[in-house]
Each structure stands twice: as C-alpha cells, then as structure tokens.
C-alpha cells in the first residue's frame, strides 16, 4: 500500500500512509528454501493491501499468511499445493500470475492476437511497398 502510494505521484497524487514494509525474519533451513519462499510470496497478492505482494506487505494478514506458507514449506508442500490451498480460500485473486481459464483467455491470448494482427498488417504493407533491391538506386552522399 505504501508503495502504491509513493508511486502514486508518479502519475499524480497521494494521500496518507503509515504502514511500513515488511521485515519478517523466518528461520529458513537453507538459502534454497529462502529463495523459493521469496519467489513464491512475491507472486502472491496481499489481499488487504491490493497492490502489494505478500512478500513486501507489512499487513497483519500478510504476516500470518507468510507464516502459514512457511509452515507448509516445512511440511514439504510443493508450490502448487500451497497455491491451491490459498486459492481455495481466497480465490485466484491472490495470484499475480492469473491461471489460464475461460475468464483469462483474452488476457493471455490478447497480446499474441494483437501481435499477429499487427504483424500481418506490417507484412502486407511491407510486401506491397517494398521494391526489389536491384530496383533501388544507390543514393550518393551522406546516408543518415
């Protein structure tokens, strides 16, 4: 939230904020586990802050879920199991990486579709407009 606020003046304005970001020392077994934890929680949304990840948020809610996720990791749960567990409770809204579903088809295929359409237009225009190389006269002088 605080982050969102500060960025807010990027494009215009802001209001008050008091929250601080999260510093939450958890007793990880090793670096790999810590990296995995950071990677996972960075891609989860802190529901109560709306535009902050679970990793970054200092909200009580985020702290508690971080603890839960940490515990589940200790129990040997996979990232997917943890995500499923969260989705069952908080819906896919908690995932910053929206899964492919009927409701996200336009999201995931929108960009390729736009690229394809743009690519076709460009290809057609170039094909129509471009001349064979030998038909183009060398231009003397500065080429810039």
């Amino acid at each position: 939230m605080k982050r969102l606020l500060a960025i807010a003046i990027l494009a215009f304005a802001l209001t008050l904020s008091t929250a601080a970001f999260a510093i939450d020392p958890l007793p990880f077994q090793n670096t790999a586990q810590r990296d995995r934890f950071q990677h996972l929680t960075r891609e989860l949304r802190c529901m109560v802050c709306q535009d902050e990840s679970l990793l970054a948020s200092n909200a009580d809610f985020a702290k508690q879920l971080r603890r839960q996720i940490f515990d589940m990791m200790q129990q040997g749960k996979s990232d997917q199991e943890i995500k499923d567990w969260l989705v069952a409770r908080y819906s896919t809204f908690i995932l910053y990486d929206p899964p492919l579903a009927p409701s996200t088809i336009a999201l995931w295929f929108g960009t390729p579709a736009i690229l394809l359409a743009g690519g076709i237009v460009v290809a057609v225009v170039l094909r129509r407009r471009a001349r064979p190389a030998h038909a183009i006269a060398e231009e003397p002088g500065e080429d810039w």
Binding site: E43, R45, S91, F93, Y96
Partner: peptide, 10 residues
C-alpha cells in the same frame, strides 16, 4: 467473471 490479479509474472 470474478476478480483477477495481473502482476509481474504476467
């Protein structure tokens, strides 16, 4: 159709 988050992984 439900609330969707789109973030850095997208």
């Amino acid at each position: 159709i439900g609330r969707i988050s789109v973030g850095p992984p997208y």
